[in-house]
Write a protein that binds this DNA or RNA. Sequence first.
DNA 1: AGTATGTTTTTAATAATTAAAGTCAGATCA
DNA 2: TGATCTGACTTTAATTATTAAAAACATACT
Lengths: 300, 300
Amino acid sequence: MARTDVRFREAYNTLIEICAGLGESASLPSENALARSMGVSRTVVRAGLQRLSDEEIIRWEGRQKVLLRRPGAADRLEIRIDGPDADTLETRFLEWVLRFDVPAGTTLNVAQLSREFGVAPHVLQEFLAGFTRFGLVERRQRGGWRLLGFTADFAVELSEFRTVLELNAVRQLVALPPGHEIWPRLEGLRARHLDLASRLDRDFHEFSRLDEAFHTTVTGVVRNRFVAEFQKVISLIFHYHYTWDKTEEKRRNAAAIAEHLDWIEAMLARDAAASDAAALRHLRTSKTTLLSSMRSHRQA
Amino acid sequence: MARTDVRFREAYNTLIEICAGLGESASLPSENALARSMGVSRTVVRAGLQRLSDEEIIRWEGRQKVLLRRPGAADRLEIRIDGPDADTLETRFLEWVLRFDVPAGTTLNVAQLSREFGVAPHVLQEFLAGFTRFGLVERRQRGGWRLLGFTADFAVELSEFRTVLELNAVRQLVALPPGHEIWPRLEGLRARHLDLASRLDRDFHEFSRLDEAFHTTVTGVVRNRFVAEFQKVISLIFHYHYTWDKTEEKRRNAAAIAEHLDWIEAMLARDAAASDAAALRHLRTSKTTLLSSMRSHRQA
DNA sequence: AGTATGTTTTTAATAATTAAAGTCAGATCA
DNA sequence: TGATCTGACTTTAATTATTAAAAACATACT
């Protein structure tokens, strides 16, 4: 079989339900009406009607579609579940690369990876093609793919790019009007930082989530599809590297919380210069942490 | 035939040449040596040797590969030229979209487009997949692709993103040391601007090229793979829209030259604040021009 | 006249096929 | 005897072929 017939099977089961809901020797609506209500093409509807006719559930002659018997659960077709969607695949792929620390330059094996992730090879192909624009993978000279990312160079450039994006966000943020929803959200984030700081001895590993929430809030003020696309990948990469490097995690998180609080205060005060400076300070620390985390992970 | 045998044919022709350069009843080197020198796998070499043997050009028994006759031009295999490479495809695709002003929301037909551009459907598929990250196209619910880009929203977001990238470049540029190659290059660009300004009445359409050279130079100081990837698409889009909008082209170009010169002067003076301001002023004009160009083009 | 059905064409997802690369054991020669 | 070579086999990815589904068109019915 070339394409899967999942659509047909789903449509057929819907037809079964429609028939089950009908009275004795009732008639089915027109093909067009069925197609519209089921959200599939008439071709699929007709294939389903043919099958219903073959199974002697209906008598189908031209526009006459008369119910012969009420179908039961046994008449339904089985549907095998299919693979993960695009977002899940993205997360799983990056997790795979980051968690197992796949070295830069590794040849990626589409056939093997697609088995591993439970998707069709061409889905993975398409997915990897998307990453070439991010410089994460490249096409090899003679077929196949090569992983490029997660070298020190990559980390530096990623950090710099992140800095550019976040500074831009900060500049836009401090110019927002007093009534904007960002201000109460920042207040909330300040409270959460203070709360976590007070019980950091025990709950220091909660910081990773708070960090992500904070950066998402700040960058979220910029409504720009290009920025948004990058931010997804950036936050994932930073997130993973943070959760790896367990050395001095408590001390690092305490420092980061302090930096965040400075930054939040500056923004709440609408002080553009101070916000800029605070952001830069924190982003520089982040970059250093990312690089050292990569080093320590490579040695492990 | 599943895959093309271009590699085999090229390898075979190379083998023919090697044989032609050999003396009477000489021997060919080992399969490994041939594979290495020709840059193909042994499988291809062996297929080539088999063919040479079938054509009775060599006698092949184990590691004995004795030349029977000197092959001529008639023994070479024909190689049909294949389609355009990735960069050409990118340019041609964007040209197609921009030149014919394909409206946003258009369903892209992979089969048809691949015929038009002379590439295999899956090559185009992969290419489109790359553009999803730029928000230029998206996957449709049930197969196929939809063109998203080139709405007013897109133009605004693109312009804003461009501004972010260029301002970042400017900030890095003014901090470069006096001995850096950027300074003579900027001097050169200033001279080219002044030159063009003096003969603008006649050669005003030359500005498009100069504009591209200028922006490429400025953004080129940032060594960042993410920035570079975006810059390619951005410059192409701006370039095309500029060359469309013929209304008041001379006046617009004169204004742009003046803005560029202000900007160049500020950078040459290492004046960060003034550079920033001049850049912002010009980029704002650019954005306005892009938007009005899209409007006028839509009406045309 | 408008809607329903029958038929044909086109498209895209996936299976199948094939060229090429990679792998490994055993043969051969220095 | 050790390095290199060959033969056979395995795996991979590019491309073709096939098929499900959608779309377009023509015809029939109410």
